[in-house]
Amino acid sequence: MGSAVGLAVGRGTGPELATVFTRTVEKFGLLYETEIGVARSPRIYHSYHSLMADGGTARIRRLTEEDAGHYEQFCRAQAALGTTAVFRTAMNAQSLYLVRERLQAVKVDVITTPAAELLVVRDEAQGFYTGENSHRPGVVTRTMTFDRAITEKVVAFALERARRQWPGQRPDRILMAYKFHLLDGALDEWVREISARRGVDLELCQPDTVNRNLIEHGLPARTLVISGNEWADIMHVVLLDRFASERQENRYTENVHLHPDVAGLSEYQTVHGSADDLAGRDLVNPVATLRAAAAIVEHHAHCPGAVRAMELALDDLRGRGILTADRGGRHSTTAVVDELLDVLAAHHLDGEHFAGSR
């Protein structure tokens, strides 16, 4: 059975990571004897660095909107074709946030400790990271919106995702981290009503209160945090470090679009940015992209066991010191990927770690 996934590429190290992604998907397709097509967007999207290279506010605004419009239409077209996953390398945040607002996106991440799991559902569809800019000499005014219907949609998604994460068990605690004191009590009112109607205890907290509680009390076994984008964007690297001893350079996340026009389309991304200073030097850490590729083929392209196979292959490379410089090694991006794909093939031939493959 064939499958298709989308691919969107930004500047900086995007082209190099796109090669890592396509090579990995092709390898899994061969190992699982399944055809996995990769539909690549024809546009190379700007990074912030590439936008600033030539400067000019009017030009930046124009290119930002062009990138956002193009990427939004690419996502809509992929969803219309029945594609359920897109891998995107880093692109300029302002363009990306416009698309997330228009397609009503949430970002999902699970942080695991030996004794607990933290499920973070980040509201990307509204709030301080969304909105439009207007300019007059010496002043930029940014206008954004909070919406009751969007809040309801985000909470409903988070509760359903928690049920999938912990089948048969309820979260021990559900926190909502928003700057609600700035909203005239409206968000308070909405959350109380949603909480009562759904029969769940939603604790609406200021972001600094959430931080204090996590530091003071740690994590219950199952914690769900529904958050404004601005809190989670800043805190993600801290949560990874404190609770999982992980680094963002090795992580990917999943964005799910809730707009009915693109329902069912997930976007996977590396947590790290475009790393323009490393572009074209064959030095970028490929681990986040490799993990994203494995997750996509397992969950969207009929390759059961791909995630576990990838983790074991990465463990193999780490044990032998085959790492990029940022992880303490001396190997290029290409050398790491070459070796990893060979390890995947060797494990497959040995009949290991590829449940469901032939």
Rank of each mutant, 00 (worst) to 15 (best):
R164K: 14
K179D: 04
H181Y: 14
S195C: 05
G168P: 08
G199N: 05
W190L: 05
L202G: 01
A162F: 13
Q165L: 14
D184H: 15
K179E: 06
A156Y: 06
V200M: 00
R192K: 10
W166K: 12
D188T: 10
G168Q: 10
W190N: 03
Y178D: 11
P171A: 04
D201H: 02
Q169F: 03
I174T: 11
I194N: 01
K179G: 07
R197D: 05
A156M: 09
D188G: 12
W190D: 04
Y178N: 12
P171E: 08
S195I: 05
H181S: 14
L182E: 15
Y178Q: 08
L202Y: 01
R198I: 00
R198M: 02
V200I: 05
P171M: 08
E193T: 02
E189L: 11
F157M: 10
D172Y: 06
I174W: 11
F180C: 13
R197A: 08
R192F: 03
L175N: 06
D188P: 02
W166M: 12
G185N: 10
R192I: 02
A162C: 12
G199I: 01
E160F: 05
R198F: 00
E189R: 15
Q165M: 14
P167F: 08
L159K: 11
R164P: 01
V155C: 09
E160D: 15
